[in-house]
């Protein structure tokens, strides 16, 4: 029974992932990514990682997908979404990804000891995970929070509104060397 359920959810994950990379409309592609990430959360739940499944839905689907959708909305006009020029290297890309998949499958097949049931080990309760994060690996935890802070600040600084003529661009920066480019952007 669980194998059938796993097969269904795995197929769903893979199918939505294929749709993400093939669909031309970017908003739809982002929503298919949301669906793929949701199915992955289902896989985590089936593997016993319930907290991670919940965190995946909260962070990825509720956060990352939203961010990307904002990104798409602010940079693309509604009418221009489907008018994406077809890429010229689909053939080579398919060859590369298929070759990589064959290589990985062969490596997995060749590694001994991988045919164990997927839920062989004792599941980690949220309490055990919390203890591991905050007691055993607290340094990595704090470093990750510093990283997130740096990412927030960096993203805010990179994408902030620059009024032309009010700010003096730093010497050596792109805006300083090519001021006409910044003024020219439609």
């Amino acid at each position: 029974m669980t194998s059938v359920a796993f097969g269904v959810v795995a197929a769903l994950t893979l199918l939505t992932a294929l749709l993400v990379v093939r669909v031309t409309n970017l908003v739809r592609a982002t929503l298919w990514l949301g669906a793929s990430l949701l199915s992955t959360a289902g896989i985590y739940a089936m593997l016993g990682a319930s907290f991670l499944a919940g965190a995946q839905v909260m962070l990825y689907v509720g956060g990352v997908v939203t961010l990307m959708i904002f990104g798409v909305m602010t940079t693309r006009r509604h009418e221009g979404l489907a008018a994406e020029a077809e890429s010229t290297n689909t053939g080579r890309a398919t060859a590369v990804s298929l070759a990589l998949f064959v290589l990985l499958a062969w490596a997995i097949h060749g590694t001994p000891g991988l045919d164990v049931p997927a839920t062989n080990g004792v599941g980690a309760s949220p309490e055990a995970l919390g203890r591991a994060l905050l007691v055993d690996h607290v340094l990595a935890f704090e470093a990750a929070s510093v990283l997130l802070l740096a990412a927030i600040l960096g993203a805010a600084v990179i994408a902030r509104r620059r009024d032309p003529g009010v700010e003096v661009p730093k010497p050596g920066s792109r805006a300083a060397s090519m001021p006409h480019a910044a003024a020219e952007a439609p």
Binding site: F51, G54, M58, G62, I69, P126
Partner: peptide, 28 residues
């Protein structure tokens, strides 16, 4: 009676963002 009941509530509530956006965007 989920082990992570609180996380479920937060996650499902957070999912509401997607249909709200989808409604606003798809209405043209």
């Amino acid at each position: 009676d989920l082990d992570i009941g609180v996380v479920w509530v937060l996650a499902v509530g957070g999912l509401m963002v997607i249909p709200t956006f989808a409604a606003g965007w798809s209405s043209n």
